[in-house]
Amino acid sequence: MPHLTPPVNAAIVGYRMGATHAELIHLVDDLQVTAICDTDPERRDAARDQLGDITTYADVEEVAADAGIQLVVVVTPHSAHLPCALRCLRAGKHVVVEKPMALSIAECTAMIEAAQEAGVTLSVFHNRRWDGVFTTARQVIRDGYIGDVFHVETHFGGYRPPSRTWRGDKEISGGLFYDWGAHMVDWTLGLLEGRRMVSVSGRFQKRVWHEASNEDHVEAFIRFDDGAVAHVQVSQIAAAGKPRFYVLGTEGALVDNWAGHVDVSARVGSHTATFNVDYDESDWPAYYKGLADHLVNDAPNPVTPESARRVICVFELAERSSQDGGEQPVPHE
């Protein structure tokens, strides 16, 4: 597919969080930010101050019409991911979308189909696939210390009010799962790599923070084709903590308590050996290095849209289950 001549010219749509993307792109020789798009004139001014000689736009239509832009990075509120991505894909631009990819399975599929029709790359910025805690836990599993994984629990939470920004507005954000839940579900699926999801069920609760439309507590239960199961919980009414990862295997277990290391229990004969493994160093720039290699040298897409759609499948089906009851079959697996 792509074999672009470097440096690849990138535009960032949405500069509030987009500033972080600009910093990461700056670290990659084969990519350069040449344009910023934001509806807020103050953020456009900030982009010029921070990035120097760049073009600024107030409308994504201007980005789509700029023939010099080859890559567009969409870092808008979640409800704007679909229209911005579709407009740029259909204009022949390669597109990166911030996670979560979109608000629904159908929106994800529409993006994937638009990229295929245009013959361009669509990728999703699941940068926390390069977080040290995840890469460490995954390597322990790959190295066979705990045997075949059959049960995974992941948790993120605390007792605090929701954001007063658009992130607390379900119509724009998608709901509580669509913030840190994007990381937790993606990590869960990564710890159970190679398995196919069969069904999802869920429970969504609204009990305390009625000033915001997001849920207070959400959880998803995922069943896989080999019988493995996973439970993902995100809460803003959890007054007591839980491990971030609790993983059971046929020959041991792995637990992460946010402590800078994972705790491993491995069966050795009739005994259990316990030891700690320090987190790897996180490497967020690896995403854009991988993307550049893909666009210039046709290396693999660092995060395929199909893999990112799996996260949205869990969100949507868990909510549907909470409303209707019962397990929901998983499409596109």
Rank of each mutant, 00 (worst) to 15 (best):
L4M: 15
P6C: 06
A11H: 05
V13W: 03
G14K: 04
A22I: 07
I25V: 15
H26M: 08
H26G: 15
V33M: 08
I36L: 07
D38C: 09
P41L: 04
R43A: 11
R44D: 07
R48I: 14
L51Q: 12
L51I: 01
I54E: 11
T56Y: 12
T56M: 11
E62C: 12
V73G: 09
V74A: 13
V75L: 09
H78C: 15
A85P: 03
C88D: 05
V97T: 04
P100H: 04
A102H: 05
L103R: 15
L103S: 05
C108I: 07
A110W: 04
M111I: 01
M111H: 01
A114T: 11
A118V: 10
T121C: 11
L122V: 05
V124T: 07
N127S: 14
R129Q: 11
R129K: 12
W130L: 10
V133D: 15
A137I: 02
R138I: 04
V140Q: 08
D148M: 11
H151R: 10
H155Q: 03
S163I: 02
R164Q: 13
R164G: 13
G168C: 01
K170W: 04
F177I: 01
G194T: 06
R195A: 02
V198F: 03
V198K: 13
S201D: 09
R203V: 08
Q205N: 14
R207P: 09
S213W: 03
S213H: 05
N214C: 12
E215P: 01
F221V: 00
V229A: 02
V229W: 00
H231F: 00
Q233C: 03
Q236V: 07
I237R: 01
P243F: 00
Y246A: 00
L248C: 09
E251P: 01
G252A: 08
D256F: 02
V262F: 02
V264Q: 08
S265G: 11
D278G: 10
Y279V: 02
D280Q: 10
E281T: 11
W284E: 13
A286K: 10
L291A: 06
N301G: 08
N301H: 06
P302S: 05
P305G: 01
S307G: 02
E316Y: 05
A318P: 03
R320D: 08
D324G: 07
D324I: 14
G325Y: 02
V330R: 08
E333Q: 09
